[in-house]
Amino acid sequence: MKTPPIEPSAAPVMLEEPPPPPPTTGPRRIAWARRRRSFARVARTYRRNKMGMAGLIILAFFIAVALLAPLIADREGLDPTSPVTGMPFQAPSWQFPFGTDNLGRSVLTLTIWGARISLLVGLLATLISMVIGSLVGIVAGYRGRLTESLLMRLTDWFLVIPFLPLAIVLASLLGRSMLIIIMVIGITSWPSTARIVRAQTLSVKERPYVERARALGASGWHLVTRHILPNVGPLIFANTILTVAIAILSETTLSFLGLGDPLSISWGTILESAFGSGAATAGNWWWLLPPGLAIVFVVLAFTMCGFALDEILNPRLRQR
């Protein structure tokens, strides 16, 4: 029998994999080769998704801006006493394309640097949320019975409690710092991930190959890491992208309400000082618009990518 090629071919997407190569390579290599093919297939389908590609491009742009901040925006511009800054409350001009804030700092510089904290907080908070949520979801789905009941009760409880009041209460108690904000968002947003992960774990648990592995005497650890995790993984990833969007919005809101670190620059804290300085009633639109628009575009981008991935990876949605 011919050995099928390992590289993804131009053939139409198939649901069944071609038979694996003869066992001169070990089972791990086979599994990874299959995963590479699977990944390539998802990448191809993703590329055809207009919404997903648009989101990805926007995302790439903002991540680049955040990473290149020291190169494209003068760090000096963040220090109000520095000579680089201009007169306060200036409308946009050639020198200051986004105008200046109440301390004469260039809003453009602020917005560029703000990208770093906003994105970082969003990503870290999501990491925490994802880890906790996946853990809870997999354990609940895999163990079942009492453990599952208890964990799902806990999850449901968290889901019912309105997010902002809870986050406010926690953050105001623990103090003003970005680290606190990261933790608070992480701790309050894991439930929705946990729910999705549990549902997927339950369905994977029932699949024939898991049963077979169990019959062959596979341990729980083996089942979870080798079978359940790889199959739940893609869904977790899609959900993670969507969670980052929510996390960024949450950080913005918490900072705006005065719970963030007053010394760090994020889009939320920029809006906090802008509003606090009366920019709204004074009509200082240049100070209010850029950070807000940046948030909108970044969140939009993450959401579009997340939806696109969800469409591709979620077996239920594919049927529609």
Binding site: L249, T253, L271, F275, A279, L288, G292, I295, F297, T303
Partner: peptide, 11 residues
């Protein structure tokens, strides 16, 4: 959905 509702309010 992508817009902070308070930002919209401010505008």
């Amino acid at each position: 959905y992508s817009m902070p509702e308070f930002w919209f309010g401010i505008l």
